[in-house]
Design a protein around this nucleic acid. Structure first.
Length: 512
RNA sequence: GACCCGGUAGCUCAGCUGGUAGAGCAACGGACUUUUAAUCCGUAGGCCGUGGGUUCGAGACCCACCCGGGUCACCA
């Protein structure tokens, strides 16, 4: 970053010159605090209240207010200035009049720029164009901005009343890298993250209300497991030991069920060393919960209730537009069996096909990357190609093949299947749960089958976790468990097509 | 990892079959005491992603690389 004034472009240089001029007048350009009495929205609301009650002052003045905000628009009229400042509650117009603030304070306005933080005191009134505005009696610079924000001009369309942004900050790379600037100039981006916070709060509130205990399990693990994925590898120096960043919470949470903490959940980051995409960030937020004495049927009901709880409390409605689809959440969501769905997509009964025939179908459908795929992977790929895109309305897919689900309990009615479900919204898997496998001998056999796949070159196959098997030998009660991709749920609720748009700081390659 | 598209002023973008780098906004100077993308007059602002090549001449054409976006693949 260039610090020599000679190297700065004229825009940056002009701001530093103003900074020097401000200091030259004995003004501290980076203030320590400001006593705010109201937000922009509160100031407007209390004016409108007084107006409605006929309590306005002689010349139409509302109550006094003191607020702080960032200057986002500036219209200099000579001996009066109109500006807008933005705070956490919105934006409000300021009116500086030379007669009112006094000549000295008025002339000092020339030292301000878009992006500066200021504090103002004044009284509210309504301009002849109808906008509630602060007539400023005194103002103070709170923070001088030395770098111009990429603010767009905002116009309110007279016909529709909608705000139109005329030029702005459109470079996606710059927006992700400089999220602070993106947030500063895009109120709608701030709103996405407010919504995200409300979703997270409601998820916790729901589970807490159901008697779950929130716990924290290791992120740094000597052995990773609980999902099929490649891990990040690191090293603990003092122990001289390889550690992995967790790819799932599952195996630790189920150890807690063994220990008698029989309703637990954890919401936290998982890490998977895989490619980036609009749906994948190497670190992402997962919510997992486990509830003793329940099976996957109970967990589908719970998942459904949880989703509706979040929608009711965050959006206040059970319908939304997501990626161009109108989605309605009307319980109970349809449940379709995995094998039935694939059979229907394929037009033939899948159970009747051997691996070779399955592969032939997959090749015919040009399903990519088939080499080394066993029966489970073939079925999974066929499902992804044939069924997944069609699952627009919330739908449970249930009873997955055993090969795909090494931690799920065998289906009580069909040994080829497991008691598992995935809930899809807008073609995306959001929930994944099952009746947890609690037979330590069966679990060992499944781990061994995974080890076989691993030896055959499947880098994502799971490893044998002896400590987890020891825990199961002590006895885990029948348990239903679910994992949910929090980022994806937020994507659906906020209608953001890329996971990067719901992560404040998505992973990017290092700058320069 | 593969393919497609892109990188030009602080921001958003234009730049024709190769011929001395442009606009709007922002900035700077000036006018204007109820404006709404305020307006008007004037000024300044560029390693055209990086490195090579072709050419009398490259922002443009060729090669390599860097960075990003999108699509696919893997997963959630």
């Amino acid at each position: 970053m260039a610090q020599d004034p000679q190297d700065l472009n004229q825009v940056l240089r002009a701001r530093r010159e103003k900074l020097a001029a401000i200091r030259g007048k004995g003004i501290q350009p980076f203030a320590y605090s400001f006593d705010v009495t109201a937000t922009s929205a509160q100031s407007v609301a209390s004016f409108e209240e007084a107006e409605k009650a006929g309590r306005l002052g002689a010349d139409g003045q509302g109550a006094g207010t003191a607020l702080g905000g960032r200057i986002v628009a500036w219209r200099d009229m000579g001996k009066s200035v109109f500006a807008h400042v933005e705070d956490r509650a919105g934006r409000i117009q300021l009116y500086f009049k030379k007669d009112v603030v006094g000549p000295e304070a008025f002339d000092r306005l020339t030292l301000l720029d878009l992006g500066d933080w200021i504090g103002v005191e004044g009284t509210t009134f309504r301009t002849k164009t109808g906008e509630v505005t602060v007539r400023v009696t005194a103002w103070a610079l709170l923070t001088k901005s030395l770098r111009p924000l990429p603010l767009g001009k905002v116009e309110t369309d007279v016909a529709s009343g909608e705000r139109v942004i005329h030029s702005g900050f459109a470079d996606q790379e710059a927006r992700y890298r400089q999220r602070y600037a993106d947030l500063a100039v895009h109120p709608d981006v701030r709103e996405v993250f407010r919504t995200r916070a409300r979703v997270v709060t409601e998820l916790r509130r729901f589970l807490d209300g159901e008697g779950f205990l929130e716990v924290e399990t290791p992120v740094l693990q000597p052995l990773y497991g609980g999902a099929s994925a490649k891990p990040f590898v690191t090293k603990h120096n003092a122990l001289d030991q390889t550690m992995y960043l967790r790819i799932a919470d599952e195996l630790y949470l189920k150890r807690l069920i063994v220990g008698g903490l029989d309703r637990v959940y954890e919401m936290s980051k998982d890490f998977r060393n895989e490619g980036l995409s609009p749906r994948h960030n190497p670190e992402f937020t997962m919510l997992e919960w486990y509830q003793a004495f329940t099976d996957y049927h109970a967990q589908m009901d719970l998942s459904e209730r949880m989703l509706l709880h979040v929608l009711d409390h965050v959006l206040g409605r059970r319908a939304l537009t997501c990626f161009g689809h109108e989605i309605e959440f009307r319980p109970p969501f349809p449940r379709v069996r995995f094998m039935d769905a694939v059979s229907e997509g394929l037009g033939t009964e899948v159970h009747a096909l051997d691996d070779k025939q399955l592969r032939a179908h997959a090749e015919r459908l040009r399903v990519p990357d088939l080499k080394g795929a066993g029966r489970g992977k073939l079925l999974d790929k066929l499902f992804s190609a044939l069924v997944e895109p069609r699952l627009v309305q919330p739908t449970f897919v249930i009873d997955h093949p055993k090969e795909l689900s090494p931690l799920a309990k065998e289906h009580r009615g069909d040994p080829r299947l497991t008691e598992r479900f995935e809930m899809y919204i807008a073609g995306t898997e959001v929930f994944n749960g099952f009746s947890e496998l609690n037979d330590p001998l069966d679990q060992r056999a499944r781990f061994e089958a995974q080890a076989g796949l691993r030896a055959a070159g499947d880098e994502e196959a799971q490893q044998i976790d002896e400590d987890y098997l020891r825990a199961l030998e002590y006895g885990m009660p029948p348990t239903g468990g679910v994992g949910m991709g929090v980022d994806r749920l937020v994507m659906a609720i906020t209608n953001q097509p890329s996971i990067r748009d719901v992560l404040l700081f998505p992973v990017l390659r290092t700058e320069e």
